[in-house]
Design a protein around this nucleic acid. Structure first.
Lengths: 142, 142
DNA sequence: CTCGTCATGTTATAATGTTACGGACGTTAC
DNA sequence: GTAACGTCCGTAACATTATAACATGACGAG
């Protein structure tokens, strides 16, 4: 396996995300890893870029935040090659607006819908599906 | 029809978005409406909040930008009521990473997938589907 | 009228993200 | 060895996006 080419900063970021129970913004990550000698936003962003290109973390668009991938079976190769035909793998997310918890899910139909919607001549690179609402626990509280 | 309760700023913002061919950030909108006496970011954000709660504009999460809804048949009632059971209407988007053009689409299957993924106890409020890639024109150029 | 309140406007600032630059370090070629 | 190059790492400055805090003005209720 060629994966563990993670550098120091990448490990710190991934570790911070792994310990968290909800998505962290780049600055959340920075705060948590500051004690671990991570000092500037740019280091976090660089690490996140690498990690997400490998599918080890995912960006939650609507929150400007990141989660560690909960199903890392597909980790390994790098997706940065822009010339590829196939889209980057990305699960869907179910996100509670109240507590911020996130659950990943997979559904093959999504890619089909996306390709169909995009049309023949559009080269799909990434499909983002995010579902927002209130989880059972937060609904109970409210 | 009770819709046209748009105030001055909301009209300005909507008009700016309507003239644009691609998503505009809040500050893009501000620039374009500055000549029309729109002065501060917060005015734009307030207008956008109202407009998007009515479905007249949509936020493209991954771009931090906004588009006027291209299918305004569903405009009218306000979605801000948090207690509602049904999810806010939001189309899917196909977005070219190169030229920034955006096309809306509808697919009923998306809502089903979302509900299914969210599960019984999760109250879905919003489903966001965004498809990124390269449009035909930009692929030709590259 | 005077108060409360809600919409709006103004200013400042927070939060987030990117670019530019330089230094440390290892590798390769000569 | 050492010069030339590349990669990683870090700092600082900057650019962009979003919100806070407070002031003003319109308007109805009492």
């Amino acid at each position: 396996m060629k994966s563990p080419e993670l550098n120091k900063n990448e490990k710190k970021v991934l570790s911070a995300l792994g310990r968290a129970v909800k998505p962290l913004s780049a600055y959340d990550i920075l705060d948590r890893a500051r004690s671990d000698a991570l000092k500037a936003p740019v280091q976090v962003y660089r690490a996140l870029e690498k990690l997400s290109s490998r599918g080890l973390v995912h960006r939650i668009e609507a929150l400007n935040a990141f989660v560690a991938c909960s199903d890392c079976s597909h980790a390994g190769h790098d997706h940065r090659d822009q010339s590829h035909v196939h889209a980057e793998h990305r699960p869907g997310f179910v996100i509670c607006r109240d507590c911020g918890s996130v659950r990943e899910f997979e559904d093959e139909r999504v890619a089909d819908i996306a390709r169909e919607a995009a049309g023949e001549d559009f080269a799909v690179a990434l499909v983002s599906l995010e579902v927002y609402g209130l989880c059972a626990a937060c609904r109970a509280n409210a």
